[in-house]
Design a protein around this nucleic acid. Structure first.
Length: 209
DNA sequence: CCCCAGGCGTCCA
DNA sequence: TGGACGCATGGG
């Protein structure tokens, strides 16, 4: 980050690494993902081509710290195999238009809407807005959006109110995540959450959330 | 000991 | 169409 805000905020030196990280971070703290990525690098497995040819047990051992390691190892290898063999690499896959690319990614086992949008936005670098747990939490706790709002509903609600721009999409999502980290999962009555303290201050003692 | 983390697929009503 | 559940390690 630095002076240019959260541009290039997603961690990862290559497109392969961004895709791998997107799978590994599913319901997982990024600290654990970093350990897994470090192990993959040490094992020379930090690329789609290497993953597509690797033994499952080698992938499993490397990504263990990221949790759900059996599922994720299978999914990583399968996704890598499809991209390398069926599409002959990311260049061909990412050449698809955004909608078709999204549908293609969604058809792969282990890639849901958030992971697909993350890959499209940060690896393919096309505008596809990412909704995650932080986005939902902030929109519900601060702006009163229904906590159980569907992915598509919240996504279209946000994108209909901001310009479809790759830089804005990247930065907007990054801002949600970085702010979201200052929320805790406990309900607004939790006194340790700094955002709750601020809300209580403004609401003169009552949560109002 | 507890709860939580940048989800996803499957099953079932 | 949507809720419940399993997946699993590491940090607070």
């Amino acid at each position: 980050m630095g002076s240019s805000g959260f541009l290039n905020w997603w961690p990862g030196d290559t497109k392969d690494e961004i895709i791998i990280g997107a799978i590994l971070t599913q319901n997982t703290n990024w600290r654990n993902v970093e350990k897994a990525i470090h192990n993959l690098r040490d094992s020379n497995l930090l690329s789609l081509w290497e993953l597509s040819n690797a033994k499952i047990t080698n992938i499993e051992n490397a990504i263990k710290p990221s949790g759900f390691y059996r599922q994720k190892a299978l999914r990583l290898k399968n996704i890598a195999y499809i991209i390398c063999e069926k599409y002959d690499g990311l260049g061909n896959l990412f050449r698809k238009d955004t909608k078709e690319l999204r549908n293609t990614l969604l058809s792969m086992n282990g890639i849901g809407m958030e992971t697909a949008d993350s890959i499209i936005l940060y690896a393919a670098e096309k505008p596809s807005f990412v909704i995650d747990a932080y986005t939902k939490r902030i929109m519900s706790r601060v702006y009163g959006i229904d906590k159980k709002v569907s992915y598509e509903t919240l996504q279209s609600f946000i994108t209909s109110n901001i310009r479809s721009d790759i830089v804005i999409y990247k930065d907007f999502h990054a801002q949600f995540v970085e702010l979201g980290k200052h929320f805790c999962m406990k309900e607004p009555s939790c006194s340790n959450c700094p955002v709750n303290k601020i809300c209580r201050y403004y609401n003169n003692g009552s949560d109002g959330l």
